[in-house]
Computed example of a mutant assay.
Amino acid sequence: MEKEFKVEVKNTLSNDFDFYSEVQGTHFSGMRLRIDDIVVPKDISNWKNKKVAFGIEYKDTKRIDGDTTNFTSWIAQCVDYANTKWDNFGYIYILTCPSIHSTSFIKEVDKEKMLTKVMSHLGIGELKNLDRYGWSIVLQENHRIWSEFRGVESGKHWSLERKFGSR
């Protein structure tokens, strides 16, 4: 399921993004990690950050749905990836794919909006398929950075540079 899902996402987004698979990086602990994909826009002319890149961590929601341990492990994995300096890319935002909102677990949480805002400050966003926008890069629950049907949106104004320490 996860492998087929990756192929579907890559096929859909390959007109707009270059994919770099199995990229390695160094976590702040010194441990070497590997992420599923890093994507870079093919056309950066409308992006504020001309070196913009995003990491994608795919998960089969059947493996994490309704299971608190697996769900929180997935989020912790994304936090680790957000605190990793990726070879040739540096520190970048990591996108959960599918969206954390696609799991039944998060739908049961009353404060889901708060969770996605906290995740954004930790360097985690979402790659999700929205009805009117297609595949979309989203931060802080509803800020579309880029969407399949509208192109660069908030990415025109946001630097998307990772921040650490005092905010």
Rank of each mutant, 00 (worst) to 15 (best):
M1S: 14
K3P: 02
E8S: 10
K10F: 06
T12L: 07
L13G: 00
S14R: 14
F17C: 02
F17M: 03
F19V: 13
F19E: 05
F19K: 05
Y20N: 08
E22Y: 12
Q24M: 13
G25T: 04
F28K: 12
M31F: 15
M31H: 11
R32S: 08
L33W: 04
R34N: 09
I35S: 02
V40Q: 04
P41D: 05
P41H: 06
D43F: 09
N46V: 14
N46H: 11
W47R: 05
W47L: 05
N49F: 09
K50E: 09
V52A: 05
A53G: 05
G55A: 13
I56K: 03
I56Q: 00
E57K: 08
Y58A: 08
K59D: 03
K59W: 01
D60H: 06
K62V: 09
I64A: 04
D65C: 07
D65R: 08
G66N: 12
D67K: 12
D67F: 10
T68F: 13
T69S: 13
N70I: 08
F71R: 00
F71A: 05
T72L: 14
T72Y: 15
T72P: 02
S73G: 14
S73T: 09
W74E: 03
Y81N: 04
Y81W: 06
Y81M: 06
A82I: 05
N83A: 08
N83Q: 13
K85I: 06
W86C: 06
W86D: 04
D87T: 10
N88R: 11
Y91R: 09
Y91A: 08
I94M: 03
T96S: 06
C97P: 04
P98G: 05
P98N: 08
P98S: 13
I100M: 01
I100W: 03
H101G: 05
H101D: 00
T103Y: 01
S104K: 15
S104N: 10
S104F: 11
F105K: 01
F105Q: 00
K107E: 02
D110L: 12
K111Y: 14
K113I: 13
L115P: 01
L115V: 14
T116D: 02
V118C: 13
V118H: 13
H121D: 14
L122Q: 06
L122H: 04
G123Y: 00
E126C: 03
L127Q: 01
K128C: 04
K128E: 02
K128I: 00
D131W: 08
D131I: 09
R132D: 10
Y133R: 09
Y133S: 07
Y133P: 01
S136H: 02
S136M: 06
S136D: 04
V138K: 01
Q140W: 08
Q140T: 13
Q140A: 13
N142M: 11
H143D: 13
I145S: 02
I145Q: 03
W146V: 04
W146M: 10
S147F: 01
S147P: 02
R150P: 01
R150F: 12
G151N: 04
S154E: 10
W158Q: 06
L160S: 00
L160K: 01
E161F: 11
K163A: 15
F164N: 09
F164C: 11
F164A: 11
G165F: 15
S166K: 13
S166N: 14
S166T: 12
R167N: 12
